[in-house]
């Protein structure tokens, strides 16, 4: 019996072989650009002038990675990005949780129009507001500051929308019970709603962090001081400034990508939920 079913399983696996081959080939194609970047980040600089290109680092120069952390200001860039992304993430989660709470548990005049007002901000692409926003930041003397990098992004309609979706699914009886127990709104939010919404909050946090870390246009505009550059601006500008150390810049590029790759892999489940929130709800 068991041998028979084991045999059948093996046979089925054999039948999947073409599919696995296709999967492996597709994975290789998708990964190829990153693979080549890793290979090149481990090459001695002399290799960059030779043709044909090498597909394997025959003498891997691991010190390129050490150089990326010491001879170009990667640690500073990474720290700037970390600070920026953390502040934006915390801000987005807090403002969205507060607003989403009001829209799902409180009654007040103009609730629906206000919610539509929130949603309408999703229709204003950031790119079209860069000129007035740049002027605002300039007038506040916030160029080359963390405030300038973060404050414009501390509230999002997307976050409010995502959390409201979840808050609305919580049983209404919770609120009635909390009212009877004399809980204020803030206490109810913090001690009941938040613990029940960890997954939704994590989704928003992962999403916000990834987006913030990967920003390009805004940090490019509001930072001139090399010390305030984020990692994205850093690698993009080093790549043209440091032609003699392309391999080191590529090592830096991999270092800039790794945290996000880890985030995406570790929190894939949450990320999927965030990315599809718009798709599945129409």
């Amino acid at each position: 019996m068991t041998r028979q079913s084991a045999g059948r399983a093996a046979l089925r696996l054999l039948g999947w072989l073409p599919l696995y081959a296709l999967l492996a080939a597709s994975a290789a194609v998708v990964m190829f650009p990153l693979y080549m970047t890793v290979v090149d980040s481990l090459q001695p600089i002399a290799k960059f002038l030779t043709f044909p290109p090498d597909f394997w680092p025959h003498t891997p120069v691991w010190s390129n990675y050490r150089a990326a952390m010491t001879s170009i200001p990667m640690p500073r860039y990474m720290a700037n990005s970390l600070i920026m992304a953390t502040v934006i993430t915390v801000g987005e989660v807090v403002t969205a949780a507060l607003a989403a709470y009001a829209f799902s548990f409180m009654r007040f005049p103009f609730r629906t129009p206000l919610f539509f007002l929130f949603l309408s901000t999703m229709m204003v692409p950031w790119e079209i507001s860069i000129i007035p926003n740049f002027q605002t930041i300039q007038r506040l003397n916030w160029l080359d500051t963390y405030q300038g990098l973060t404050v414009p992004f501390l509230a999002t309609a997307f976050g409010t929308f995502l959390l409201r979706q979840h808050f609305m699914s919580l049983p209404r009886e919770l609120k009635d019970a909390a009212d009877i127990d004399g809980y204020g709104d803030l206490r109810f939010l913090l001690s009941v709603v938040v613990p029940l919404s960890r997954a939704a909050l994590a989704t928003l946090a992962v999403f916000a962090f990834l987006q913030a870390w990967n920003q390009y246009l805004w940090p490019l505009l509001v930072t001139n001081d090399p010390n305030m550059r984020t990692v994205q601006i850093g690698i993009a500008s080093l790549q043209s400034e440091e032609v003699q150390r392309t391999n080191v810049v590529l090592a830096g590029t991999i270092l800039a990508l790794l945290p996000m790759l880890a985030l995406v892999i570790a929190f894939q489940r949450f990320l999927v939920r965030g990315l599809t929130a718009g798709a599945l709800k129409g």
Binding site: S26, A27, V30, M31, P33, L34, M36, T37, D40, L210, W213, N214, Q215, Y216, Q232, I233, I235, A236, Q239, T246, V249, L250, T253, A256, L257, M260, L261, L263, V264, I265, Q268, L271, L275
Partner: peptide, 21 residues
């Protein structure tokens, strides 16, 4: 995971990667 991995790449990272290619 491999197929969805490029969602982690920023526009700066992918530009630097492809500049090389």
């Amino acid at each position: 995971t491999i197929f969805s991995s490029t969602v982690a790449t920023s526009v700066a990272v992918s530009s630097v990667v492809w500049l090389l290619m």
